[in-house]
């Protein structure tokens, strides 16, 4: 699972530069959570376009992740990129005052979609393309909010597993405290991804790598030394989240239909 770091940086910075231009933008915008993924993404963006062309938004909900906000500010200052802090508490609280719930996942999804909605608004105001920060691990197991943190203009990091993103972060010399802290989706105080998923990223990524990149069958992965229960769970998570990785199906009734047999490239004419 080791990756050729200089080649990855060259490929991804080229991707950001070229796709931003093709989309008709000369700058990008992304949300900074103070976590690993958005930090690494910001570092890549600055390498690709320079700090003047990278805008960042820090969008906390109340005091849910104070450490994250401090880390995000630090990243923005270190990279010398413009940042703006937008507290999403008023709009989230207003909504849940009308429709109360104790379910932290519902709250987390709502927060992710508020941030998405703000990012898209600022994308239009600032004429900046939104960089997505979902990694391959999250995309595969569906650990993200559809139309929330998964929404973006382009995604430079979606083919890197979480542990590879960390390796890349070390290579890009991101702040050490961000490299070593436990990843969190910020759903509730003290929440960690690994606690919620029930697996360490190291183990999760190794199993995903065998299943996906090496095309091994679940039984073969078990034979390679992983717990059957865990392998089975991961396979289920992949299956259940396919809808998050696809455009919704369109009922086909005509002889030529969007998504079925009306097929054009994304980068058409660019």
């Amino acid at each position: 699972m080791k990756i050729n770091l200089p080649l990855v940086v060259k490929t991804l910075t080229g991707f950001i530069r070229e796709e931003t231009r093709k989309a008709g933008f000369d700058r990008v915008i992304l949300g900074l959570s103070g976590g690993l993924d958005s930090t690494v993404c910001a570092y890549l963006a600055v390498r690709a376009l320079g700090p003047q062309k990278v805008l960042t938004l820090i969008m906390p909900y109340r005091d849910l992740d104070r450490e994250g906000v401090a880390h995000a500010r630090k990243v923005a200052r270190l990279l010398k990129v413009k940042f703006r802090e937008i507290d999403i508490s008023p709009q989230v609280d207003a909504y849940f005052a009308a429709f109360p719930t104790d379910n932290p996942v519902l709250k987390g999804n709502k927060m992710a979609r508020e941030r998405m909605s703000i990012l898209y608004d600022f994308s239009a105001r600032e004429k900046a393309l939104i960089l997505g920060t979902s990694n391959k691990t999250e995309l595969l197991i569906g650990y993200g909010t559809i139309h929330g943190d998964m929404a973006c203009g382009i995604n430079p990091m979606g083919d890197l597993y979480k542990t590879q993103v960390r390796e890349l972060g070390r290579h890009l010399r991101i702040p050490k405290e961000i490299l070593v802290k436990k990843p969190t989706a910020g759903l509730w105080p003290g929440q960690t991804d690994e606690g919620e998923i029930g697996l360490s990223y190291e183990e999760l990524d190794r199993i995903l790598y065998l299943l996906v990149d090496r095309r091994q069958k679940p039984d073969e992965v078990v034979a390679a030394g992983f717990e059957r229960k865990k392998v089975k769970r991961i396979v289920e998570m992949i299956k259940k989240s396919e809808f998050k990785r696809k455009m919704p199906p369109i009922a086909k009734i005509s002889s030529r239909t969007v998504g079925h047999d009306f097929l054009y490239p994304y980068d058409w004419g660019k």
């Binding site: 699972m1 080791k2 050729n4 080649l7 490929t11």
Partner: peptide
């Protein structure tokens, strides 16, 4: 297309 980056010492894909 270039594919495969898991050889850390190779200069290309």
């Amino acid at each position: 297309p270039g594919r495969g980056v898991d050889e850390p010492r190779s200069p290309g894909f």
